[in-house]
Write a protein that binds this DNA or RNA. Structure first.
Lengths: 204, 204
DNA sequence: CAGCGACATTCCAACAGTGACATGTCGAAG
DNA sequence: CTTCGACATGTCACTGTTGGAATGTCGCTG
């Protein structure tokens, strides 16, 4: 239900049309709360009916400029201060980790290293934004920087984790292989039914 | 569309009924990919129709035990290795950060420190899981630990960030206040219309 | 053997999100 | 003055997600 609050939040900074809002969503909120046209226009109508925003001006091409109302501001403040940030987040990339066991260690490693690269790329793009922006002490600037810093730190953590995880797969494989070798040795049957340290070729 | 793959993934480890799957979802995947009964049972029917799973046994109380088919395993492997982890994630807590500017710095700080506490609590609960689990070199164990480590690292990063952000709000406020004071001084009008360093009382 | 709690499935209404399509207007560049 | 791109809104069908309700069965405990 937070699309509503995203729209209210954007309108709290300045009045805007649906079209303007779409640009704002794509510019600054894409990575945090993406929205489509249909959603934004639909939400604006609902918000108008609910009295949380109002049409503040009509422009050319049927442009309707919306402004937040007092009720809208109250609702926004209420959401910020009293509603607990919502629960469970779906995390596609992490879900896969649970099932990497059905792949060969080599494939799993590849997946994790790809994740590391993607995190690194994300980090770079945040860094670029950071460096190409002039930060002052205005509210918007302060909180924009704080949000960006979150992206920077998270992507760095993700990259480190993915690299660590890739190594972990390798070393776990090695540990298990040597364990099996020892077990075979102790059982006095050096006969092998597989490969001790290399990946299975028939499983790709 | 990854609910499908979550179900396939769980079934790849062992056959299970819808009821069993619900327990597994709540036990291990809640924080990564939550699902409701209706979704799981619905998905099982769709997957059966699509031939990716099949009913492997009938039990008491109309229990239907599902097992993954060869096609299902192929699909799962395909998803793991070739489908790019899906796009944009919604992040309620971070969305709010963008709009903290409409609150007083004190309220914003409170919000951020609450986030820090929540991250710390999450970290603790992950830690407990970590310490109360026996990790061996089995696949499931290795990847389970990797996923858990992700949670540990992320929650730690989040806590640090939130604490840093709370301080940032305070120091930005101070910087801005002193800036304003200097501006007033240089304009030769030490007359004040507000408070230089404390929060506005009428804005709560 | 009565009854309760865990097991087990199915259906439904409502809302949220996706992506494409339809429609039309204005302003500037050629 | 034409035409093209940016501006601007709206609608539709489909899928995914939520939460609840209805229904019934088995197995253990008293």
């Amino acid at each position: 239900m937070s699309l509503r609050h995203a729209v209210l939040g954007l309108l709290s900074e300045s009045p805007a049309s649906g079209y303007d809002l779409m640009k704002l969503f794509n510019a600054s909120l894409t990575s945090v709360w993406p929205a489509t046209q249909s959603q934004v226009y639909g939400e604006l109508n609902k918000l108008t009916t609910a009295g949380l925003v109002e049409i503040s001006a009509h422009g050319p091409r049927g442009r309707k400029e919306y402004a937040i109302t007092t009720d809208g501001l109250t609702e926004l403040r209420h959401w910020l201060t009293e509603v607990a940030p919502s629960g469970p987040q779906r995390h596609d990339a992490l879900l896969r980790v649970f099932f990497l066991g059905i792949l060969t260690p080599l494939e799993a490693r590849t997946y994790l290293l790809t994740q590391a690269k993607m995190a690194a790329r994300a980090h770079d793009s945040y860094k670029q934004v950071d460096e190409s922006t002039e930060w002052d002490d205005e509210m918007i600037s302060v909180y924009g920087k704080i949000a960006l810093e979150y992206g920077l730190r998270l992507s760095a953590t993700m990259e480190e984790w993915a690299r660590w995880a890739a190594d972990e797969v390798t070393s776990a494989k090695a540990r298990k292989a040597s364990e099996l070798a020892r077990a075979r040795y102790e059982a006095g049957q050096p006969e092998s039914d597989g490969e001790p340290t290399t990946e299975r070729p028939g499983d790709a």
